[in-house]
Design a protein around this nucleic acid. Structure first.
Lengths: 217, 217
DNA sequence: CCTTCGCGTTAACGGTGTTCACTAATCTAA
DNA sequence: TTAGATTAGTGAACACCGTTAACGCGAAGG
């Protein structure tokens, strides 16, 4: 494969994903269709099978791209905060919420229930889990830094240790992650609409409580 | 409309929803199709339009049924606990998790991202929000009982009061609800699979922390 | 130069939601 | 009892969808 055609192939892959994302944003995950994408690109649907084995594979690839996009956005605000590990975590959590609320359709794909045809793609799932893993790492890295400074409380949850993380960091991360996931996704998925029009105060209250739990217990 | 034919109509409605649920459980929300339902019932697809204006309306109706089913399950364990408001809340939270993990496809429908075609059904959304509201009420009712006994801490979140609930009850409920939603849905949607095979310990830890926050702060 | 291979096509199969015209049955009221 | 209105169903059709197969074209590589 020549270098020229390889770059052309990657450009086509990027265009496919870009058009797919337009449809995702316009009509939600279910309105991503090979035929519509091909139509927008001036092609026919079977041509897309030269690039993806199935529609699910395309959606999966798009999903991993979204994870890295979100990670980069959070890394940017992290690096914009001059110092203070907790302050960096705060900024990342707020950016996480901001990104999610600005991209509800993408969020449905990334953080909603799994699509039925996703779990059987072992290789694709690996790259997806890798992208998700690297997103989680930007949080655990800072928590490990807190841990090394001795500023993290010991937590009494009996959870299996994960990779090179100290057990208490794993436990504290999972507790913080699920709590963050709860406030943000409940809002993003519209499950607070019956009570709130703006969940900012609720989010900030949860963030403050999480910080308090992080400092001592 | 005679009484006989009305009961016959409701029986057909129930059968439609029962068959739809079978397909939901078998293949997820996207595999609910009018043609397949009609096929299983020995009918043709257009006949179902005598009962629902669209597929989305059917799914919406099924969804409200699921909310009341979940509520009844939680009410049952609540009434099985002899006394102790906090103990009842614990039992309801555990039953909520148990039901969700036992019914992942139904959970995707009820607590996942909103389906694109759902929000325009104003009447259907009313009945859905009503079912969801009554589910939330079984939790707020117990919290109001705690509030009347003076066992609830004052919480400092500035949130709009909801209906006849005291403001601190609204705030404490929303904080508890989003937290519960987070642990349970993150597990149910498979977003903890990379770290945990069994999230029971994490759930119990969160439940314990929530109870501590409820007792005093 | 010739061959392989990447990339695209058309045609086709089976599936989907939805609408329309129509029929058979049942319920209602004169 | 009989005429009319309502109900519940049918089949055909339209416009989509994912996917597969057979085929052509044009460029890359030996």
């Amino acid at each position: 494969m020549s270098d020229r055609s390889q770059r052309r192939r990657e450009a086509t892959l990027a265009e496919i994903k870009a058009v797919a994302r337009q449809h995702l944003v316009a009509g939600g995950p279910s309105s991503i269709s090979l035929r519509a994408i091909a139509r927008d690109m001036g092609m026919t649907a079977p041509a897309l099978y030269r690039y993806y084995a199935s529609l699910d594979a395309l959606v999966l690839d798009l999903c991993t791209d979204l994870y890295t996009e979100l990670r980069i956005a959070c890394e940017a605000v992290r690096d914009a905060v001059p110092d203070g590990v907790i302050e960096k975590l705060h900024a990342m959590a707020r950016e996480f919420r901001r990104w999610v609320l600005a991209h509800p359709a993408e969020t449905a794909l990334m953080f909603g229930p799994p699509l039925p045809g996703v779990n059987q793609f072992i290789d694709g799932c690996n790259s997806l889990q890798d992208a998700g893993h690297r997103f989680g790492r930007i949080f655990t890295d800072l928590m490990v830094e807190l841990y090394r400074q001795g500023r993290l409380p010991d937590v009494l949850v009996d959870l299996p240790a994960h990779e090179d993380l100290p057990p208490s960091v794993t436990a504290l991360f999972l507790k913080g992650w699920t709590r963050l996931y709860g406030v943000i996704m409940a809002e993003a998925f519209g499950h607070l609409n019956w009570a709130l029009t703006d969940a900012t105060a609720l989010f900030e209250s949860e963030l403050a409580d999480m910080t308090a739990d992080l400092r001592s217990r």
